[in-house]
Amino acid sequence: MKKYLLHSLLSLGLCLLPASVVAEQDAAMAEGLRIATERKVRDTGWGDTEVVMTMILRDARGRESRREMRTLTLEVLDDGDKALTIFDEPRDVRGSAFLTHTKTMVPDEQWLFLPAVNRVRRIVSRNKSGPFMGSEYAYEDLSSFELEKFSFTYLHDDEVHGELCYVVEQIPQDEYSGYSRMVVWIDKSHYRVQKIDYYDRRDSLLKTLTIHDYKLYKDEFWRADRMEMVNAQNQKSTTLLMTDIQFDRGFTDADFDNNALQRAR
């Protein structure tokens, strides 16, 4: 119960904070939002992409297992993006396809096509914090970045991968998120995410994502070739490799609806 006492003392202390500190906090939040907005703005207007993804899962003993999938994405300017993921490996889920309409304000909509039953099922669940394909990524780590989903606070500057970065704290607005907060390193040169620390609901470091080998596409958009997620609590890790990144595939809304899901192979 000591913790509760500490918390109440802290909150009492916060009330007594002088106005200048409050103003400082406001400034940090404004700066955080500015950085996040710039990050979003710089990654707007790319249209659509298709990418082949390979996941290499490792357990505490270093044993590996692979998952393969393709992801088609359509940018939606006034709402969350639409994504269609088609599973290729392991073989017994080949042809399964997962369609998401990311929403900014309401829960995302999700459908799953299972070739073995040849039917589309809508998944009604608030949960998006569980492991994606048994990996160290959660579905929420892979869905599109939307400003409305978080509150932002600029913390300080730091250097990662030789890039000078802003370090911004992101607090998820969704109570069903698996995280209490994330600390994000965004490079100053191109506003690309270099690293994310995820904190679990008891505010312990859960896992760390590092993003590697950014390449420039269409002279404007940066996409990474490799992402590494390392779990700090159970020593498991997952490497995510992106290959064959293609832009301007000419996708439309029709490629991201129920019918498209059944056609996907």
């Binding site: 889920v93 299972l114 073995a116 039953v117 579905y139």
Partner: peptide, 29 residues
Amino acid sequence: QDLAAQYLLMFEMSLPFGLDLNNQLNLDK
């Protein structure tokens, strides 16, 4: 086999943090 695998895929996609099946299934299933 594919039916079982796809049921599991669907179920795993819907589970929240901490309540996954990793305590019953190993990495490569």
